[in-house]
């Protein structure tokens, strides 16, 4: 570990790593990096490297932890043993337990917990390489992973820290500034501008504190832009029109239509002989109400007997299923036209 530098800010107003006092470190992220997780994000922010994964909503065990009216969010912040210069003892520590708790609470105002009663959403934030500001980096990554998992949220959460070095407020501390600075104030902000996490280490005056919050909000706004950009580019990157067709149909009815036709398939196996179906057809003629449909169907069949000859599989069930709902008529027609 390097010794304390003499000056954090040079005569040009630039910091040790060449940034201005209100500049964040370069950040890049990618979502959907883990195939087995429901949502994931890999984030690099300066020298920080974070991998976040979201699983759920899924069944919660042990059952005594279940909340009858809402989903439980579990957040695990963990630093890999190799993430810092001197190897740290693996496993939860006092520090990581605390960070896990406050980070979880940072997401509580945005996640719509009442939609999944009794279930759990697990968030894992793994710090692979640390260089100051890992809790805020982890929150940024977790926020993206939650969106990637399709969890309903009122907005994204962005986090950033402000610190004091050489008596001056600076945005997004790096390691030297964090270790030898006078104050460190990490903050998380929802996209509505609500502060969902704020901590302070060291001391600042009231005036400085107010200014720090303003600087932090600006930093978070920049991060939010990067997050938006990442999410929106995920699919345009495939260099195709990112526009689906109608999806708003009544899915239930559609699924039902596939069911009845799956059913037809089975029916065919049972009665492959057309004659049998015909016999059934006749017997149903007794029924007055269905007569109309029956006739229509029969006509349809008559119109296109040759075409249909090799499509016995398609045509056959319509005899058998006459008493069923009209659903499959369009289905049948469709299959002919396609």
């Amino acid at each position: 570990m390097s010794d304390k530098p003499e000056k954090f800010i040079d005569e040009n107003g630039l910091r040790l790593d060449g940034r201005r006092i209100d500049e964040i470190r370069p950040m890049k992220m990618e979502i959907g990096v883990l195939s087995r997780a429901d949502g994931s994000c890999y984030l690099e922010w300066g020298k920080n490297k974070i991998l976040a994964a979201v699983y759920g909503p899924r069944e919660l065990h042990p059952r005594r932890l279940q909340k009858a009216d809402s989903v439980l969010i579990r957040y695990r912040y963990n630093m890999a043993a190799f993430s810092v210069e001197d190897r740290i003892r693996p496993g939860p520590s006092r520090r990581s337990t605390e960070i896990s708790k406050v980070s979880r609470e940072a997401f509580e105002p945005v996640v719509l917990t009442h939609l999944y009663p009794g279930a759990v959403i697990d968030v894992f934030a793994e710090v692979l390489q640390a260089d100051a500001g890992t809790r805020t980096a982890a929150i940024n990554a977790a926020s993206m992973a939650l969106a990637d998992a399709g969890i309903p949220m009122k907005g994204l959460v962005s986090a950033c820290a402000v610190g004091k070095v050489d008596g001056q407020l600076v945005l997004d501390l790096n390691k030297a500034e964090d270790n030898f600075g006078d104050a460190d104030i990490p903050m998380a902000i929802t996209s509505e501008g609500e502060i969902s996490l704020i901590q302070m280490d060291g001391d600042v005056t009231q005036e400085e504190f107010k200014k720090a919050i303003e600087m932090c909000k600006e930093g978070c706004r920049q991060i939010l832009e990067i997050q938006k950009e990442t999410l929106k580019n995920k699919f345009t990157k495939l260099d195709e029109v990112e526009i689906p067709e109608d999806e708003e149909e009544d899915v239930s009815a559609l699924v039902e239509s596939t069911l009845t036709s799956a059913d037809e398939g089975e029916a065919c196996e049972d009665e492959e002989v057309v004659e049998e179906a015909d016999a059934e057809d006749d017997s149903e003629d007794v029924d007055d109400v269905e007569d109309v449909e029956d006739d229509e169907e029969a006509e349809d069949e008559d119109d296109v007997p040759e075409e249909k000859a090799d499509e016995v599989v398609e045509a056959d069930p319509s005899f058998e299923d006459v008493e069923e709902e009209e659903d499959e008529n369009p289905e049948d027609d469709e299959e002919e036209t396609v």
Partner: peptide, 19 residues
């Protein structure tokens, strides 16, 4: 969430796949 795509507009995709 992608089930509607498999079914397609008015069941067109399913019919196509089956056929």
């Amino acid at each position: 969430t992608k089930v509607p795509r498999i079914i397609g507009h008015g069941g067109s995709m399913v019919s196509l796949l089956k056929k």
